[in-house]
Design a protein around this nucleic acid. Structure first.
Lengths: 122, 122
DNA sequence: TGCCCAGGTATCTTTTTGGGTACTATGGCA
DNA sequence: TGCCATAGTACCCAAAAAGATACCTGGGCA
């Protein structure tokens, strides 16, 4: 495996795959690429994610050093999330993904897929 | 949700996320970006994936029109997989991912993560 | 007094994923 | 005659991910 990894240089890919998989991470990073956001701001933008899942994904992204978490010691609590310097480096990838997805949609592939998402109940 | 989707234009992102998630898909696409490959060639390059899983991921990528599957009616069976025109458009994204991953590794983040992968038994 | 807010945890159940093993087809070769 | 090769399926079980629900904090306000 070690040789395979070197030979085909898949290590970086495995790493990225590892970081970026997870049902909501790409979306979270995408939102945070515009602004830092508070927990509930993110939640509002991801109507299908449960609080638990969101917390989990955020913790994982934080652990991987892609986002930071800033807690304000106030009541009620206030927590802000944003991209770290490392995280910002992923923005161009997100933009390309967005471009690809948009083109893919235009060409009619995966229309039903998005329709599913868009037309599901609030 | 429809308005949210339009407002933040997340649809393409959800789509890409959908296509690209799945434990092995990015890696499979990465390999196929060099050559078309036979089933067992892919399997050899992904020592941890079981036959069932690989079949599953390939079917899913085929359904999303990113790869084609060409069956030669010979015995023993011969099946080739390769990127479609749509699939080829994702190559630049894969290359950026690779670049990001490599840089991330160089900076020491996620060293342990890759170490895990590389040092696990064959 | 009791309820609200935001941003969580804790616990339980369900669903989805993944792994293991066995089985298939068919022509060629010993 | 029996065995090999490749690219799968079928079936069952284990593990992981996701969902539902309840609970916590502590200051402000009715």
């Amino acid at each position: 495996m070690k040789e395979k990894c070197l030979k085909y240089d898949i290590c970086p890919m495995i790493l990225v795959q590892n970081i970026v998989s997870g049902k909501w991470k790409i979306l979270i990073l995408w939102y945070l690429s515009y602004n830092t956001l508070r927990f509930n701001d993110i939640k509002k933008r991801l109507p299908y994610v449960t609080q638990k899942m969101l917390t989990q994904q955020l913790r994982s992204l934080e652990k991987d050093n892609l986002i930071f978490r800033k807690v304000y010691p106030v009541v009620p609590p206030k927590v802000e999330y944003g991209l770290t310097e490392v995280g910002k480096k992923i923005i161009p990838i997100l933009e390309m993904m967005h471009g690809f997805g948009a083109e893919y949609l235009e060409q009619g592939h995966g229309k039903e897929k998005c329709a599913e998402i868009v037309n599901s109940p609030d």
